[in-house]
Nucleic acid binder design. Structure first.
Lengths: 107, 107
DNA sequence: TTTATATATTGCAATATTACGATATTAAAT
DNA sequence: ATTTAATATCGTAATATTGCAATATATAAA
């Protein structure tokens, strides 16, 4: 097997899990933190900063983009990646809804 | 490769990613939601409820236990799984800290 | 136009995850 | 003691993820 049976879950459950999954890699956590710490938007020295190959960083950025967490704008010959604040907040709210709704009724 | 380079990240980044990762599967989201909806603690009909094989459910429960999210108590011949509320809240707080700290400074 | 620089994509190897059948293990019931 | 029921573990197949070198693409600078 090896394949997740997404059909047996609700769309909400799959979406939620997808958000968690994308955030579930230390490189992607580090990338988001690094981008957020830059005052400017020139986010290209991620390769040096993080310490993974350029191809690998590019792949992680793609995954973060896939859930809409990052905006990328062409800035001359480099790319300006920045956090999509609206999406960021929306996802945070969804996760909190999950945490607040899912509460223990026992023990 | 296929192996995550945890050594190049901070412990906090790895921990955070680990929490996200464990929550990053729809079956585990569904398990947590189901347990939280039961008034009693007899959480053994997960297999019927979720629709995955017993071995698979057991594996997912193990992962949820691995980050301390579930408590398991022996209740006769079955197991009583319930959410560890203290841990649950602690993790929610850590995730929110990450979300609030990591804010956009650009665009 | 050529060169240099930044990023994306492709292809591939190594490892991880998901899922399940089969087989323990454990405790209650007979 | 044996049987039944619930859960855990083992072994294994299928698929996914991680990471990188090589290559493609695109823009600025020369």
């Amino acid at each position: 097997m090896g394949i997740t049976k997404t059909q047996i879950f609700t769309e909400k459950q799959n979406d939620l899990a997808q958000f968690f999954k994308v955030l579930g890699h230390p490189a992607r956590v580090a990338i988001l933190q690094y981008i957020s710490n830059q005052n400017a938007c020139i986010c290209n020295d991620l390769v040096e900063e993080i310490g993974l190959a350029q191809a690998t960083i590019s792949q992680h950025l793609k995954e973060l983009k896939s859930i809409g967490l990052l905006n990328g704008e062409i800035e001359g010959k480099s790319m300006c990646y920045c956090i999509n604040v609206e999406r960021w907040t929306a996802i945070q709210n969804q996760l909190n809804l999950f945490f607040n709704t899912t509460k223990s009724n026992c023990c």
